[in-house]
Computed example of a mutant assay.
Amino acid sequence: MSEPRAPHEIATVACIGAGVIGGGWAAYFLSRGLAVRAWDPGPGAGDRLRRTVDAAWPALTELGLAPGADPQAITLHPTAAEAVAGADFVQESAPEDLELKRSLLAELAAAAGPGVVVASSTSGFPMSDMAVAAADPSALVVGHPFNPPYLIPLVEVVGGRDSAPWAVDAAAAFYRHIGKSVIEMTRELPGFIANRLQEAIWREALHMVAAGEATPEEIDRSITDGPGLRWPVHGPCLTFHLAGGEGGMAHMLDHFGPSLKAPWTRLDAPELTPGLRDDMVAGAGRSAGGRPMAELVAERDRAVIAVRRAVAAARAAGDRA
């Protein structure tokens, strides 16, 4: 078994692919005081990467830079293998082309040193499908960010069929160490968690526009001025827990469960079995952390007010600019 790099021992990250995602990752790694070795075969990749880092740096500065953070601590290399040489962690962000991912990840796995994790930013491919060409896929994992990676904290981490447990754990530990919010998934799922939820809203929105039921403007406002204000605080599951009042998730499911069969979406609803009900109730309880409903409501209300004020202030500042 390879001995993985401890999170605090990682000083250099190879960013393979310097587009929107790869460039955003590079900016974030730099802001955490890390050095970046980059590779991208596209014309003008170096200039494009420099522009991405420069554009992200004011926001990263406002969020707070790590000691020693240097936007110039980045080097561009002529091959992927050279970029990976000497790197303590590898973040692959190539285009979403399965055959390209397979060949590139095989090359990166071969070039990476012992104990170096190679994480893919793929937005939907399972690692089991991407790792088939690698001679040794044990260090290959998914480290799926949300765009832009320098600003959105979420990273979903999951291994493939042949990923070593140490690699999954090491990737999750590293991302947490540099300030990311990590979901360490226990099983592969195409699209992972966040993209599947986002895609469900997106497809329903397209259905409504196509049928003349709503405009894009109405759909956007229905989220920004509606449930979107609550989600940064509690997310959809804990939001529905609060919707049940003192009875919480159990009351909400028992009372509104039949509406799952109402034609409110083009998606088929799952059967609300006793097992699913119990899982949702138990999960809401864990998310609540034993806090009483009144405390959760007060937390939500404070945060929603803060979000509304912050958004309004950002819009006003934009209007003055």
Rank of each mutant, 00 (worst) to 15 (best):
L100F: 11
P95R: 06
A83D: 08
P95E: 06
E92F: 10
Q91F: 10
Q91I: 05
A109Y: 13
E99L: 15
P95Q: 07
L98N: 06
E99Q: 15
E82T: 13
P95V: 02
G86M: 13
F89Q: 04
G86K: 14
L98G: 03
A83M: 11
P95D: 00
E92H: 10
A111C: 02
L104Y: 00
E107H: 08
V116R: 02
D88R: 04
V118H: 08
A87F: 08
A94R: 01
A109H: 13
L108F: 14
L105E: 07
L98A: 06
P95L: 10
L105M: 15
A109I: 09
L108R: 13
V118Y: 10
V90F: 12
V118I: 11
P114H: 12
P114A: 05
S103D: 14
A111P: 00
L100P: 00
G113S: 08
A111F: 01
E96N: 03
E96T: 01
A109C: 15
P114G: 04
V84L: 04
E82F: 07
F89E: 03
F89K: 07
E107I: 11
A111D: 00
E107Q: 15
A87N: 09
V90G: 02
F89S: 01
G86F: 12
A112T: 06
A110C: 08
Q91E: 12
S103Y: 08
V90K: 04
A112K: 12
E96H: 08
G86P: 06
P114F: 13
G113E: 05
K101T: 02
A110S: 14
A112H: 08
G113Q: 06
V117W: 05
L108W: 14
